[in-house]
């Protein structure tokens, strides 16, 4: 899912950076004082989740769970994911610095989209349809992310198109796994703390 420094054309990098700055700015405005610890906690959860390897087919994949992040945070997912990516770049060398913007957009935008599409439905869902909503959000976000990674490669040059296709194909098993995982997690959260899935996305303290 990570694109490294140097692979993308400067147009793509700059567009990504500009969009990411806009998204992060808007996301930060959505976080009021009371929500700060909560957003940071979620951002830490997603960072830890990305260190967690789950067996998929013959190998294993690390979790991205951007769908789940979107459902929990709404627009605030932008700064949360940016911080996660920055830490990964500096401490583990995953992903690059100039492509931080592109990577942020590729992961956070599908998350916001899933939040926008799924959470009104999730607010009313009961029983099996909670699982369905979770699955759609989880696998949909991964699908969109891999397509966006593919597109940002393809936009950098015709020669990357085969690589882009490979990226999308290789994420199909991950989609299924993330879908099931997100469904289970959403199911649990909805039962235990339904308030965490606030559909309005207004991140306030809930006492």
């Amino acid at each position: 899912m990570h694109i490294v420094d140097g692979a993308l054309s400067s147009e793509v990098v700059v567009t990504g950076a500009v969009l990411a700055v806009a998204g992060i700015g808007y996301g930060l405005r959505k976080i009021d004082i009371d929500a700060m610890p909560r957003v940071a906690m979620m951002s830490a959860v997603f960072f830890v989740a990305s260190l967690l390897h789950v067996p998929v087919g013959p190998s294993s994949a690390h979790l991205i769970v951007n769908g789940l992040a979107g459902l929990m945070l709404g627009w605030a997912v932008f700064p949360a994911i940016f911080i996660g990516l920055l830490l990964q770049a500096v401490f583990f060398g995953f992903g690059g610095i100039t492509v931080l913007g592109v990577n942020t957009i590729n992961i956070a935008l599908p998350a916001v989209l899933m939040w926008w599409l799924v959470s009104p439905f999730l607010a009313r869902a009961e029983g099996k349809s909670i699982l369905l909503a979770g699955f759609v959000a989880g696998s949909g976000a991964i699908a969109l992310s891999s397509i966006m990674v593919g597109l940002s490669l393809a936009a950098s040059g015709q020669e990357f198109v085969p690589t882009a296709k490979l990226v999308v194909m290789s994420h199909i098993p991950v989609m299924v796994v993330e879908g099931i995982l997100t469904a289970a997690a959403v199911h649990l959260v909805k039962k235990v703390r339904p308030v965490m899935l606030a559909p309005a996305g207004s991140l306030r303290s809930v006492g």
Binding site: M41, V45, A49, L52, L63, L181, A184, A185, R193, M196
Partner: peptide, 18 residues
């Protein structure tokens, strides 16, 4: 296994939230 990891993640979220 995947469902159990999902519950693990959910539980992390709930505990983190609290």
């Amino acid at each position: 296994s995947w469902r159990s990891f999902g519950y693990l993640l959910g539980m992390l979220l709930v505990r983190g939230h609290d």
